[in-house]
């Protein structure tokens, strides 16, 4: 009986190791985003609108794929980026974003610089959080990383 119990324990250990190994597998975009200094790469004054927008455009689709896209007050980051692209192309100082909230059509206007900073910040941070959560989520689990 003890032998069987040992084998079962070993199988469970194997399963646990497999789970922790899969938890370590993170998307390449997440790894790349994790290395960025979000304040620097999303600085519109230092980098210019186009570069900041390019960062947002690069990372936000990955956040969408992973299901971690940010949304603030009814506006998804994809909506920010879409509106921003048009404003940058037309060299407009302001960007008007149209979105739906509770079935109603709404719109909000932002300074283009501000919208660029936000979309870049949202895209990069969403992925950085995925990386951070790999090592932090267990700290909140009672009986695991969280003692009481």
């Amino acid at each position: 009986m003890k032998t069987v119990q040992t084998i079962v324990t070993l199988l469970n250990l194997g399963a646990a190791l497999t789970l922790s190994a899969s938890a370590e597998e993170v998307n390449a975009a997440v790894e790349a985003a994790a290395k960025l200094d979000v304040k620097k790469v999303c600085d519109v004054r230092a980098n210019g609108l186009e570069k900041v927008l390019a960062v947002a455009e690069k990372y936000n689709p990955e956040a969408v794929k992973l299901g971690v896209e940010f949304k603030r007050l009814g506006i998804t980051n994809s909506t920010y980026i879409k509106g921003l692209k048009e404003a940058v192309k037309a060299k407009k100082p302001e960007v008007t974003l149209k979105y739906k909230s509770k079935g109603k059509e709404k719109s909000k206007t932002f300074k283009t610089d501000y919208a660029a900073w936000r979309s870049c910040h949202f895209a990069v941070r969403a992925l950085q959080q995925v990386k951070e959560a790999q090592s932090t989520y267990r700290l909140a689990i009672p009986g695991d990383g969280y003692s009481f």
Binding site: A15, L19, S22, A23, V68, F70, K71, R72, F122, R125, A126, Q129, V130, E132, A133, T136, Y137, R138, A140, I141
Partner: peptide, 23 residues
């Protein structure tokens, strides 16, 4: 078991611009 573990991770991971987890 793997699905359960992913669900657990979803619950305890901080997300969104407020960086909040369900926990």
């Amino acid at each position: 078991q793997e699905a359960y573990e992913r669900g657990k991770k979803n619950y305890y991971s901080q997300r969104g611009y407020l960086k909040l987890s369900c926990a």
